[in-house]
Amino acid sequence: MPSTTVARLTSLTQGYGAQRIIDRLDLTISTGVTGLPGPNGAGKTTLLRTLNTIAAPQSGTLELFGKPLRGERDARRARRRIGYLPQDFGYYPNFSVRDFVQYCAWLREVPRREAHAAVGESIAAVALSDRQGDKMKSLSGGMLRRAGIAAAIVGKPSLVLLDEPTVGLDPGQRLDFRELIRSLARDGSAVLLSTHLVEDIGAACDSVLVLRGGQVIHGGTPRDLALAASASAPGDSALERGHMTVLNGHSVSG
């Protein structure tokens, strides 16, 4: 399936008050799975929040699904097609898993005639069908994370933004998660995966963008990143060494 542009940022600047986090960033996000590694403070979460229209750009332009965002009406229309899992997401403790995912589907305006089946499908996709009646406050950390993933993918959004989604998942659950996001890409979604776990990027991503200081300092495939590795760079795999090489400035590619 040929890739399709889902988001385009042009000279985008973003920050909080006088603090500039992203500075004149040009970036295109296409269908498929894109990994977004980078150190703490690199701007990953700020980028995801901007793409989710939580925060309007301070300057520059953001285009989603072929249309520039010029105001709240455009942002609301775009949100219907975006699934977002923050690193720390809120929930009502007394909601059941199904209530929580159903509520998130309602917030994103998933059509009522589709919502019931969509909620069941997303809960099944994260292997929580047998716990869907349990209250959120009773779940383990890993189960909470899986419920959050279900909420992000309910209704098969066109753009899925995931901030450290595998925190708290055991090795088997991480393998299942990788297959899940690959299946989303096969269905035509664009998935942006922010993570410190480069092995997840190597296993599940079609492309990788290394962020540092609010700028993309390396872009390409996971193999390209592994090939950028310096022999003296720290890391237990070529991909980890490539990531550290790029971050330390030994090699920069666009």
Rank of each mutant, 00 (worst) to 15 (best):
Met1Arg: 14
Pro2Tyr: 04
Pro2Lys: 11
Ser3Lys: 14
Ala7Asn: 00
Arg8Phe: 07
Arg8Lys: 15
Gln14Ser: 07
Gly15Lys: 11
Gln19Tyr: 02
Arg24Gln: 14
Thr28Pro: 03
Ile29Lys: 09
Thr31Tyr: 06
Gly38Val: 00
Asn40Glu: 08
Ala42Glu: 09
Thr50Ser: 11
Ala56Met: 13
Ala56Cys: 02
Pro57Tyr: 06
Pro68Ala: 08
Pro68Cys: 04
Ala78Ser: 10
Arg81Gln: 14
Tyr84Cys: 04
Gln87Glu: 15
Pro93Phe: 09
Ser96Gly: 14
Val97Glu: 07
Cys104Glu: 13
Arg108Trp: 00
Val110Pro: 00
Val110Asn: 04
Ala117Ile: 08
Ser122Trp: 04
Ser122Ile: 11
Ala124Lys: 13
Leu128Ile: 06
Asp130Tyr: 10
Asp134His: 11
Lys135Ile: 04
Lys137Gly: 05
Leu144Gln: 07
Ile149Asn: 08
Ala150Met: 05
Ala150Phe: 08
Ala152Arg: 01
Ile153His: 05
Val154Met: 06
Pro157His: 13
Leu161Ser: 10
Leu161Glu: 13
Leu161Arg: 06
Asp163Met: 13
Leu169Val: 05
Leu169Cys: 12
Ile181Ala: 00
Arg182Thr: 00
Ala190Ile: 00
Val191Arg: 05
Thr195Trp: 13
His196Phe: 01
Val198Tyr: 03
Asp200Pro: 05
Asp200Ala: 03
Ile201Gly: 09
Leu209Ile: 07
Leu211Trp: 15
Leu211Glu: 12
Arg212Ala: 15
Gly213His: 13
Ile217Asp: 13
Arg223Met: 11
Ala228Ser: 06
Ala229Asn: 03
Asp236Ser: 15
Leu239Asn: 09
Glu240Ser: 12
Arg241Ile: 13
Met244Lys: 09
Leu247Met: 02
Asn248Thr: 15
